[in-house]
């Protein structure tokens, strides 16, 4: 990968910051929130893929990082009943 590619990626990242700020100003809708987080995911994928060279990394490295993310998904799904349902019912009493 050459310097030109890194600089191009940088300007794409800056443009994405602008897009997310505009989405934040556009209106308080679910679509805007989804857009803001989609933009964040895109920015993160660019940094991971091109700046951290994860694209060129061995597959086991990707699996190792993916397993960390999988743990978070399990944590989120596992805590939803406690935090949202049980906690919500107590708060409502």
């Amino acid at each position: 990968m050459n310097r030109g590619t890194y600089i191009k990626i940088y300007f794409v990242l800056l443009a994405m910051v602008g897009v997310s700020v505009l989405l934040g100003l556009a209106g308080h809708t679910r679509i805007a929130v989804a857009g803001i987080f989609a933009t964040a995911l895109f920015k993160a994928s660019l940094v991971l893929g091109y700046y951290m060279h994860l694209k060129a990394e061995k597959n086991w490295v990707k699996w190792m990082l993916g397993s960390g993310v999988a743990c978070l998904v399990i944590l989120f799904v596992g805590l939803v009943p406690d935090i949202v349902y049980v906690y919500g019912r107590i708060a409502g009493n």
Binding site: L23, G24, I36, K43, V47
Partner: peptide, 17 residues
């Protein structure tokens, strides 16, 4: 940097909704 990429919308943009 990646962590901040997620913290920025979480704490500055999206929570206002």
């Amino acid at each position: 940097d990646v962590v901040w990429i997620f913290l920025f919308p979480l704490l500055y943009l999206a929570p206002k909704f």
